[in-house]
Computed example of a mutant assay.
Amino acid sequence: MKKRLLGLLAIFGLLLGVLPVGASAAGSGESVIYGGGPFYSGGTATMNSLRSSGYTTVMLWTIHVNSNGDLVYNDQLVVSQGKYVGRAAWPSELASLKQAPTSVKRIEISIGSADVNDFHNIKSLIASQGTGTSSILYKNFSALKTALGADAASFDDEDLYDVNTSVSLGNMLSGLGYKITLCPYSNVTYWKSIKTQLGSKVDRVYLQVYSGGSWNDPATWSKNLGMPVMPGLDSKTPTYGNTPSQVQSRMTNWKSSAGITGGFMWLYDDMLKYPNYGSPADYAKAINTALGS
C-alpha cells in the first residue's frame, strides 16, 4: 500500500510539473486565442504566457496576401519570393509554444480580414499562375509552413466570397500539409459550398459571434455546415465585449444548445490593453470550464 501511494504521489507530481495552470489532463474541449502584433514582437515572455494560459490553439492573426504574392503578418513582411524574411527569432519562439509544460497543441495562421483585398489578390494570382509548385502562392505558403510550422490555415474571407478561389487555395494548402479551418460571420451559402467541396480537409469552423456576427446562432450554423462550429466572443473593453464570466455563461449555454466542443477568444491584444477586465488565462479558463475541459 505504501509503495502504491508513493507511486501515485509521483504520478501526481509529474502531472503538476507538466500541466500548466488552467490545463486539464482529461478534457477534450478546444480553446483558441486570436492575437496580432504581440504574437510577433512579444518574444519569449509572450510565448511563455501562452504556454501557461490554458489555450489549446494559438491563432496568428493575420496573414495578408499582397498583389505580388508577398505574405505580410499585419504590417510585417514575413515571406517574399519564396523565402522567409521575417524576424529571425520568430520561428523558434513559435516552436517553443508546444514544448512542455504547455497547454498549446496547435498553431494556425489566419488569412484575410475585413476591409482588405487579400482574397481578391489570391484570385488574381491563381488566374495568372495557378497553384502549382512554380506559382508564387505555392512557394510563399510553403516557405511560411517551413518557417512557422503552422498546423492549419484559417480562411477569414470578408472581401471576395468566391468559392472557386477559396477551394483552389484550400486544396493547395492542404497539399502543403496545412489543415483548413473556416471563420465565417455571414454568407452561410458561400461557406457551406467551401466545406462541401473541401470535405475532410476542413477540420474546424470558427464562428464569429461578435461585431457583424453578434446575432449568429452556433446551432444553426452547425446544422448548415454539417459539423459543430466553435463560436468566438470578443474580450471586454470599455465600449464592447464580454467579461470572463459572461464568456463562461454563453459557452456553457452553447454547449447545451449546440453541442460545441470548442470556442475562441478575440483578442489577445485587447486583453493586454485592458487587463482589469481579465487576463488571457482568465478567458481560457472560462472556455475550458464551460466545456468541462
Results as ranks from 00 to 15, higher is better:
Y84F: 09
A153Q: 02
Y190W: 12
K98C: 07
A100R: 10
T196I: 13
R87A: 13
I109V: 15
S103H: 01
K139Y: 02
L173H: 02
A147C: 09
L207P: 00
I126W: 00
D151G: 09
L97T: 02
I111T: 07
T133N: 11
L144E: 01
V209S: 08
Q99T: 15
V167M: 08
A150E: 04
T146V: 14
A89V: 10
Y185E: 03
G199Y: 05
V202C: 06
N164R: 07
S96W: 07
L169P: 00
G175C: 07
A127N: 14
I136A: 08
Y185N: 02
I194K: 02
L97N: 00
A127D: 08
V163C: 06
R106A: 12
V116E: 12
S166N: 15
A114F: 13
S174C: 09
S134V: 13
E108D: 13
C183N: 08
D156L: 10
I109E: 01
Y138M: 05
L176D: 03
V116N: 13
P184V: 10
L173A: 07
P101N: 08
S193A: 11
Y206V: 07
S142L: 09
D115R: 15
Y161A: 12
L125A: 04
S110W: 02
L97M: 07
N171Q: 15
G149A: 13
K83Q: 15
A150F: 03
R106L: 15
M172W: 01
A127G: 09
G130D: 02
S80H: 12
T189Q: 14
D157H: 04
A143M: 06
